[in-house]
Amino acid sequence: MAEAVTATARQATVGDSEFDRDTALTRRAPGVYDIDLSAGWTIISAVNGGYLLAVLGRALADALPHGDPFTISAHYLTASQPGPAVVRTDVVRTGRTLSTGQASLLQYDEQGDEVERIRVLASYGDLDSLPDDVRTTAKPPAIPPIDQCFGPEDGPAPVDGSSALTERLMLKLDPSTLGWALGQPSGRGEMRAWFGLKDGRDPDPLSLLLAVDALPPTAFEIGLRGWVPTVELTVHVRCRPAPGPLRVSLVTRNLAGGFLEEDAEVWDSADRLVAQSRQLARVRLG
């Protein structure tokens, strides 16, 4: 059944996908890019942080001499809205194997003044040039087959406008992390799922920036509900993912002072750890 789901979904290709179209930028001048942030990547009215990181990641791939993100750290300053935005990039350093740049995404307020939404610092390289030597104690998450997991389509009908993001994803959640959906959160702060793009586009380094921030927040399994806005998110891309669905595991071990950390691992169909991330997020208590 899992093989059938994957096969029927595989339609779009890298460069010819809704994800690629909605993260595409127009270069206005060297280091300056225009984009219309799509409402298709929102939850309620908030633009997803992983989608925004992919937008900035694509701009830096164009601005820097290297094309693959190795590490990218983002600070989310103000909430982004669907609509026009400007991305400004600066090249900090270029080297033979790594180049470093920074970028900011800005939108306009009601008075027409620029408001900075996100600022990132990133190092880029060539993932295909990395050695094959892997020494790790990490293991892929134990997730049931896709046909034994559950997606948004298996739950009640969403509120209008609340599920634009999930409508663009192939997201199948591990039943053992779905207690929150039944009113019985486990309290463990874990979330695991199969992940892909709905149109079947295979994963690449830029889509990994989306994958780490596309699952329901671990706060739900701790017993909290509501928006969990990201304050800071750092992603390490470890290698180019193989074709096929990804497995994403999120874990939170500490919630204190109204903030929690969320650690993510992303594994590809070849059982390789292709991305890791940590984010700090704010939660609303009570």
Rank of each mutant, 00 (worst) to 15 (best):
L165S: 04
T166R: 14
T166F: 14
T166K: 07
E167W: 10
R168M: 15
L169D: 00
M170L: 10
L171D: 02
L171I: 09
K172M: 13
K172Q: 15
D174K: 08
D174P: 13
D174N: 12
D174A: 09
T177G: 09
T177F: 13
L178P: 13
G179C: 08
G179F: 02
G179T: 06
W180T: 11
A181Q: 14
A181T: 14
A181D: 06
A181C: 07
L182Q: 13
G183P: 04
P185K: 05
S186H: 10
S186K: 08
G187H: 13
G187Q: 11
G187I: 01
R188A: 08
R188F: 13
G189T: 09
E190M: 13
E190N: 09
M191F: 07
M191I: 08
M191W: 02
R192S: 15
A193R: 01
F195P: 00
F195S: 06
G196V: 00
G196P: 00
K198N: 10
D199E: 06
G200H: 06
G200S: 07
G200T: 04
G200L: 05
R201T: 03
R201Y: 09
D202C: 01
P203N: 07
D204W: 03
D204E: 06
D204F: 01
P205A: 12
P205N: 06
L206F: 03
S207W: 07
L208M: 12
L209T: 01
A211Y: 06
A211K: 10
